[in-house]
Amino acid sequence: MIENRPLLTFFSHVMLLLGVAVIALPVWIMFVAATHPDVRMTQVPLPILPGGYFFENLDIALNKGLSGQSGQGVARMLLNSLVMAMLIACGKIAISLLSAFAIVYFKFPFRMFFFWMIFITLMLPVEVRILPTYEVVANLGMLDSYWGLSIPLIASATATFMFRQVFLTIPDELLEAARIDGAGPMRFFWDILIPMSRTNIAALFVILFIFGWNQYLWPLLITSEPEMYTVVMGIKQMLEAAEQAPEWNVIMMTALLAMVPPVCVVIFMQTLFVKGLTETEK
């Protein structure tokens, strides 16, 4: 900073650490709860330091679930979440890459019409078209399937716009050079465009993975078979059960399991994550 004010800098650090603590507090409490046996979790006051039951709880959550319920563990839900997140992320990237390529590099009838049609999806979040979309998926027989979980969410204006933006910054001469080298459209797409956009693709993947993993309303609507539940939904189911017999240690372990994959993605791919966030908002 401009002036050398050690006291102010010290104060800033203190305040920042306080802020970090406030932000981390709920997660700390969750983590502590996930390390104690269920008996301890019914005694007031609840512990604020971790206990030694972490792996026992992990085992219960993954393999058995809440005692009152079907005995369905979270492991299956984690797998479902992973599949859904991957399908949504990869699906969105694939169809957006293709349509952005068509819109930027080809002149064809209805080009602008298609563009606006994709644009409109920006204004139709799933929350405002829940019922009719549910009906469509039901009529297509896609309830309780991975396709039903992912496909209705893979049309994306933001991803298409982002790739369009990326393609527009690629110099025209590269296409000309590729044409002189004899590359046709698809060859140009694979050999030049995709490799040149790979950091953008990776950044978008990080964002979309989190988006997909955290989907809640949609899986809630279209899954009724416990085998198709996602982990994020599982938490809510357990919360409902908690009204009668609270097993907070298992619920919080489940919340921890639901949180760890996307949080790890953010922390370990931070650069890509930040790039993805700032680019999709353009």
Binding site: A94, S99, I103, F106, I120, R129, L131, I151, A155
Partner: peptide
């Protein structure tokens, strides 16, 4: 080709966005 390229996006948009809306 461009029609084939936009096809998946447009189908998903039509079936799951425009039609429900």
């Amino acid at each position: 080709l461009p029609f084939l390229l936009v096809f998946p996006q447009i189908v998903v948009t039509l079936v799951f966005f425009i039609w429900p809306a």
